[in-house]
Design a protein around this nucleic acid. Structure first.
Length: 699
DNA sequence: AAGGAAGACTTTTTT
DNA sequence: AGTCTTCCTT
């Protein structure tokens, strides 16, 4: 037990020892809140003999949950499992798999992702004769989603609807929900909403879980929405052992319904709540912390606090004006070279940007100079077309009810079934009240042309075959069969480079499934699909490989890096132009800036470009207002020093022979500024940076 | 029904 | 600039 307490400061210790009753931990950036949480859970288990089964620990990402488990296991020195630690969504899925039949769903429900949702919205609008040009389907989906996160169902929405837009949304909301239910599918918001709905309608079920979860811990409480708030409140109503951790300064998800007031209002629900403040920062240098503080201090709507640190002052924050987005990347590459000489590795470096689209130019430069990197987020693996296709097959086979998936794959590869015949088939199923599978086996009764009937019934036969295969094969072997039997492989394998990469991706999913099988003995297709749906980008991130990390500032939440480059600090990019309409959104941008800055431990670079390619044209935006908020004594402008930085360390001209640390010897065939083209003896032609690349001249 | 071409539209951030 | 849509041709 002394182990559990000895490494904590007094506030952290207090957070660990206050096990009974409601506790609010206000934890500033880098103040060791994960430490406090893990030690608290370890203390509960070891000292208070609480079974892990009785602990509910909610984190923001699956990765955070996993890390927490590992840290607790290290503390306890044994292999305790914590079955109820995970994201709100994953915990709710666990509950719903047991209870959802109460709401008339089948227990084998599927989870619809964003693009599925949009598809259903579009179909619903078409069915209702609503013009998608007049009402943007994404805006409609957004309205429905925020209603759901406020615990407002279609019927209540109808009552509350004001104005034409909301009346239209009401109609679509009903139709959308109806279609999801027909497919036995839940969207992300439903996972939370339906769980709370069950708690509301079935008190005995609620009581069962109240009795189970003696202790409830919630991380990143500033980013919970209303439904999540209700979920916590209801579950903790009996034992009242609820401990929430958060920082209103780091609330960056209000656009998806999060409300940092949940933190500020905690004491209203629990007047006797113990409030503990963690204000000592262990992460950053004094300069970085001070700079970040000056940025956030401009916000009006915030609690008052001041983080402090015992760390050294460190270097000033480095400011750099690049000529354009290309040069932005080149500056980082040159700096990375200098940093490497000072003992930093590539995995110590993160590049953070506001929008995913910004990664492309950076990626191009890194590629050009052969710098290893990894990108978190962006075009996700699971959203690639071929993967969505394959997953649609899997979802359709697994559920037998999923119309969204069915429509995606019925004519993929082409089976001669177009929109018209699909419509006939759909009406046939609707009018006769047939399930999707039943309708498929009764295609003969439709008034489709014989050719179409054949197409449908052949598809139906294949589906039946796959269903029986799914019952006998392991997930990975089954997926392998699906890729062949569906015809997806031959469809994509057209000999083109693009086709090759698509087939490669299809096969990559087999490996993902193999790993899944190894990690989880006895779990099947349903669990595999579920795990994939609930995965976030950051969940797959590991910092082991020697490469620079690129991600959005949002994704960086909860992480830290010795060196952080914040790029694209220009008005219109960051703060984003869409935020300039409301003061609230601008404050959120500012919080995002604070979050990004406080990721840095030793070095922080603020980079902006005077010209930037945007929407196919060049635009020039003034430097971000956030740069002006950093006092000049904490910042040094590197821009004037570029020439010096970019000067090649030695003279290289065409015709020189060089040696590269990795590629061996080669001949310089061209010099273009800081870029050199080298024909390597065994690696062929490569373009390198003469500043950064580990090359030396030989004679 | 399918493939191709011109045109619109994009880019916030994500479980 | 790249991707997604829609319309047009076969």
């Amino acid at each position: 037990m002394s182990d559990i307490l000895s490494s904590l400061n007094s506030a952290q210790k207090e957070a660990v020892l206050a096990t009974k009753g409601p506790v609010l931990i206000l934890a500033g950036a880098g103040s060791g809140k994960t430490k406090a949480l893990t030690h608290r859970i370890a203390y509960l288990v070891e000292h208070e003999k609480v079974s892990p089964f009785n602990i509910l620990a909610v984190t923001f990402t699956n990765k955070a949950a996993k890390e927490m488990k590992i840290r607790i296991q290290k503390l306890l020195g044994s292999t305790y499992d914590f079955p109820f630690s995970g994201t709100f969504h994953s915990v709710c899925v666990k509950i719903l798999r047991k209870e959802i039949e109460l709401l008339g769903y089948n227990q084998r429900f599927l989870i619809s992702d964003g693009s599925d949702q949009l598809q259903v919205i579009k179909e619903s609008m078409k069915y209702l004769n609503i013009d998608p040009k007049q009402f943007n389907p994404r805006a409609v989906l957004g309205a429905i989603s925020s209603a759901k996160s406020e615990m407002v169902g279609a019927a209540e929405y109808a009552n509350l609807a004001v104005g034409h837009f909301q009346e239209i949304v009401t109609k679509i909301y009903y139709e959308y929900d109806k279609r999801l239910k027909e497919s036995n599918a839940l969207d992300f918001d439903d996972l939370l909403l339906k769980t709370v709905e069950i708690f509301n309608k079935f008190p005995e079920v609620l009581e069962k879980y109240q009795n189970q979860f003696h202790y409830i811990l919630v991380d990143e409480y500033q980013d919970t929405n209303h439904v999540q708030y209700l979920f916590c409140k209801k579950l903790s109503a009996k034992h009242k052992n609820i401990c929430v951790v958060g920082d209103d300064w780091q609330s960056i998800y209000s656009w998806r319904g999060a409300n940092y007031r949940n933190i500020l209002d905690f004491h209203k629900d629990y007047p006797d709540a113990k409030i503990i403040k963690l204000e000592q920062n262990y992460r950053s240098t004094k300069n970085i912390l001070e700079a970040a503080h000056n940025v956030i201090a401009k916000n009006i709507e915030r609690t008052d606090k001041k983080l402090w640190t015992d760390n050294e002052s460190g270097l000033p924050v480095i400011l750099y004006e690049a000529f354009n987005e290309k040069e932005e990347g080149q500056f980082i590459i040159a700096e990375a070279g200098r940093l490497e000489k000072q003992g930093y590795g590539l995995s110590d470096i993160a590049i953070l940007y506001r929008t995913n689209a910004q990664s492309r130019s950076l990626e191009e430069e890194l590629l050009k100079f052969n710098i290893p990197y990894k990108i978190i987020g962006g075009v996700r693996f699971y959203e690639r077309r071929e993967i969505k296709d394959l997953l649609s097959y899997l979802k359709f086979i697994y559920s037998g009810t999923d119309w969204v998936s069915f429509k995606r794959i019925i004519n993929l590869p082409a089976r001669g079934i177009g929109a018209k015949s699909l419509e006939v088939f759909e009406n046939f199923a609707r009018n006769n009240n047939l399930s999707l599978m039943d309708a498929l086996s009764r295609v003969e009764d439709t008034n489709l042309q014989d050719k179409m009937k054949k197409g449908f019934s052949e598809f139906g036969n294949m589906a039946k075959q796959l269903v029986s295969l799914s019952n006998v094969l392991g997930v990975a072997d089954f997926i392998e069969k699906v890729i062949i039997k569906s015809g997806l492989k031959s469809y994509y394998d057209d000999g083109s480079v693009e086709g090759d990469s698509r087939v490669e991706n299809l096969e990559e999913l087999i490996s993902v499934a193999r790993e899944f099988e190894e990690a989880s003995s006895g779990l099947g297709l349903g669990e595999f699909l579920e795990q994939i749906s609930l995965l976030s980008d950051i969940d797959n991130y590991s910092d082991e490989s020697k490469s620079i990390t690129l991600m959005t500032m949002h994704s960086a939440k909860g992480l830290e890096f010795p060196v952080v480059f914040m790029v694209g600090l220009e008005e219109g990019i960051f703060p984003h132009s869409r935020s300039s309409f409301s003061e609230e959104e601008m404050e959120e941008e500012r919080r995002l800036c604070y979050v990004a800055m406080t990721r840095a431990r030793k070095r922080l670079y603020l980079v902006y470009a005077s010209n930037r390619m945007l929407y196919g044209g060049i635009s020039s935006n003034p430097p971000s207002r956030f740069i002006n908020d950093v006092p000049s004594h904490l910042m040094t402008d590197f821009t004037t020093r570029t020439v010096e930085l970019k000067e090649p360390s030695f003279d290289i001209k065409a015709g020189d022979k060089i040696r590269h640390a990795k590629f061996g010897t080669g001949l310089v065939v061209g010099v273009n500024g800081e870029e050199i083209d080298v024909l390597f003896d065994s690696f062929g032609l490569k373009r390198l940076s003469s500043v950064f690349a580990p090359v030396e001249k030989i004679n």
